[in-house]
């Protein structure tokens, strides 16, 4: 761990000014990922701005009937919040599928969005990694790539975003409220995380001098038809190989609107609105779900150790849709 300086901000304005004033500054809240990375020299911020005292922990209804999650609400408080459990159970389930109870007690909602990839090479400073050290190369492409991307990757980086929560937020089309020196703005979740392209060092479109203040959920929570399905190598405390967040708006057995987001397959939660649209006005059935699953993985490319994810994603999408639509598995040719 490299030496660093530390200040504690009292309000959003001073936090933003601290972050923009100090070169190489990072914001720290729960610290569940940042501190680990600092200890092994993967991240080397010269200055930390502690924002844990900011009044951003509340979860409250918006004027439009949605819900505003304070940036500093913990993952645990969010998952077990009455409004979230009742109106956005998809989000609650996704959060509880991630990490451990101890980590969720400490980790914040904004921090969850900003966690770094779990690529083995990103974590080992004795290996090449374009995300950690731009220009050094990607060790994962020809290395061990079991937890890596099958969609949206580039020749520079095949890392995945590890969050479960973000996958649910993508399906819920959340909006991220941020504040910077120029004031406030809102970023749709779809535009928040980036694909690696030739700048894999940038995980998100959040500017270096901006901080997240809240995550806004629209009134549409898909509380009747939802699923968060997570496949992983053990039943807890493992990152998703493939996860699927599904929210369906249904009338009888007809789908009005479908939202599907995949985790563990790309550098960001993966949506495919065109494929989702295939379900609009369709009956909920395995026959109708299969083409959507196929469309989702169209163009996917795997590597030595993760090609199985393509088929796993396909099957997981079908399974998640069946569960969300309450379609009886066994009466549909299964």
């Amino acid at each position: 761990m490299k030496p660093f300086t530390y200040t504690r901000a009292d309000d959003v304005t001073s936090a933003v000014s601290e972050v923009s004033r100090q070169e190489g500054a990072k914001v720290i809240a729960g610290g569940t990922n940042l501190l680990d990375l600092m200890k092994i020299d993967v991240m080397q911020p010269r200055h930390l701005v502690d924002i844990t005292r900011l009044a951003l922990t509340t979860i409250e209804k918006t004027a439009e009937g949605g819900l505003l999650l304070g940036a500093l609400a913990t993952n645990a408080d969010t998952a077990y919040h009455e409004q979230v459990e009742q109106r956005y159970p998809l989000l609650s389930h996704a959060i509880l599928a991630g990490a451990t109870a101890q980590l969720r007690n400490k980790a914040t909602d904004a921090g969850n969005l900003l966690q770094r990839t779990r690529c083995y090479y990103f974590y080992d400073t004795h290996t090449a990694c374009n995300k950690r050290e731009p220009g050094t190369g990607c060790s994962a492409i020809h290395g061990y790539n079991r937890n890596h991307a099958i969609l949206g990757h580039s020749e520079h980086c095949i890392a995945t975003h590890p969050s479960d929560m973000a996958v649910a937020l993508a399906a819920l089309e959340a909006r991220i409220h941020v504040t910077g020196p120029q004031g406030e703005r809102t970023i749709p979740i779809a535009d928040f995380h980036r694909l690696p392209g030739d700048t894999p060092e940038k995980d998100t479109n959040l500017a270096d001098d901006e901080i997240i203040t809240a995550i806004e959920l629209s009134p549409k929570g898909f509380a009747r038809h939802y699923t968060y399905l997570k496949n992983r190598d053990r039943a807890s405390y493992a990152f998703a190989l493939v996860s699927v967040a599904v929210g369906l708006d249904m009338e009888g057995d007809t789908i009005q609107e479908a939202r599907i987001a995949l985790g563990g397959v790309a550098h960001k939660p993966w949506r495919n609105p065109e494929a989702e649209a295939l379900l609009t006005g369709k009956k909920a059935s395995r026959e109708n779900f299969q083409p959507v699953a196929d469309a989702y993985v169209h163009g996917a490319k795997g590597f030595e150790h993760n090609s199985f994810k393509i088929e796993l994603a396909r099957r997981s999408i079908v399974r998640a849709l069946m569960q969300a639509a309450h379609v009886d598995q066994n009466s549909n040719g299964n």
Binding site: Y120, D124, T127, S139, G143, Y144, R234, A238, F239
Partner: peptide
């Protein structure tokens, strides 16, 4: 990892042992 001749999943997040849920 044969590119480096190095064990690469060298922490307990990536070297999996059973958790209670298993």
């Amino acid at each position: 990892d044969h590119q480096y001749g190095r064990f690469i999943n060298h922490d307990l997040a990536e070297y999996h042992v059973p958790v209670n849920a298993d």
